[in-house]
Nucleic acid binder design. Sequence first.
DNA 1: GCTTTACCTCAAGTTAAGTTGAGGTTCTAT
DNA 2: ATAGAACCTCAACTTAACTTGAGGTAAAGC
Lengths: 154, 154
Amino acid sequence: MAEAVWSVGKVAKRCGINVSTLHFYEQQGLIHSWRNAGNQRRYKPEVLRRISVIKAAQKVGVSLEEIKQAFESLPNNRTPTVEDWQQLSKNWQKMLDGRIAYLQKLRDNLAGCIGCGCLSMTRCPLYNPDDKLAESGSGAVLLDQAEQRARMDR
Amino acid sequence: MAEAVWSVGKVAKRCGINVSTLHFYEQQGLIHSWRNAGNQRRYKPEVLRRISVIKAAQKVGVSLEEIKQAFESLPNNRTPTVEDWQQLSKNWQKMLDGRIAYLQKLRDNLAGCIGCGCLSMTRCPLYNPDDKLAESGSGAVLLDQAEQRARMDR
DNA sequence: GCTTTACCTCAAGTTAAGTTGAGGTTCTAT
DNA sequence: ATAGAACCTCAACTTAACTTGAGGTAAAGC
């Protein structure tokens, strides 16, 4: 069975990150520890889950700041329960769905667009400087905005 | 019809970016210009396409370095043809497909994982420190790696 | 008991991707 | 022909996310 208390070095090794990164995350309020008699950091196994989530999130481009905010929904007075984590998971899924949708649209538009040779500033979705795809969420947004631009340019 | 030559300010405005960013991109070798008699930058309309691609790529987390490498497949002695851009588009699509696959796996694993409460270091995909999902591309990679870890841990 | 390894703090350095500012020149519009 | 907008260079600053290093303490192994 796993021990209930982890040292900074153990956590670092298990997670494949540097000790300095753990110091840093703690300083940023992303993880927490207490100290032993000799002033060394001690962790609950819970920290491993947090770090996993941090790393997973970073891979998809979420900033530490956003991660921190997500973690604020977790209780800091007690160890998060399954339900606490499930709630966070739900929120993340929405975000992930959004990102997936964005990527898919981008891929599909690139196919028709990047190689089309049209060079029409007013029509080509790619030239749209301020598309809000990630937020807007549904439909042929790129094309809609291209239409709007075409109208404006007249 | 659009003029064949653009000033730095026009490009910046059209693309919704700062003039300083154009200077920066040029310095990084991502875009090119020539100078007029008064030493001011002049651009071919082609630059708009480049910037659109840069911006689109950045949104999905591609670094300028990677973008630069992708651009190196474009000819620098002549204006890129439709075929040149189509080739780049193809490469990007592979990359985008990879990222989409990664996000989908992540989302699905989060669903089963983040809220499961298992805390089993050896089994939980999320604890896998060095997953190479993005590169490996296919199959139940997360789970495979969790298996490997379980074996190693014995 | 002693040595080696792990840990501590705090300050400074690093990389990416820009931004800001000073000091000076060129365009453009009236 | 002149004012104001746009442009130029170069250096320094900014933010995120860490890393490195110095100088010192604690813990673990033999």
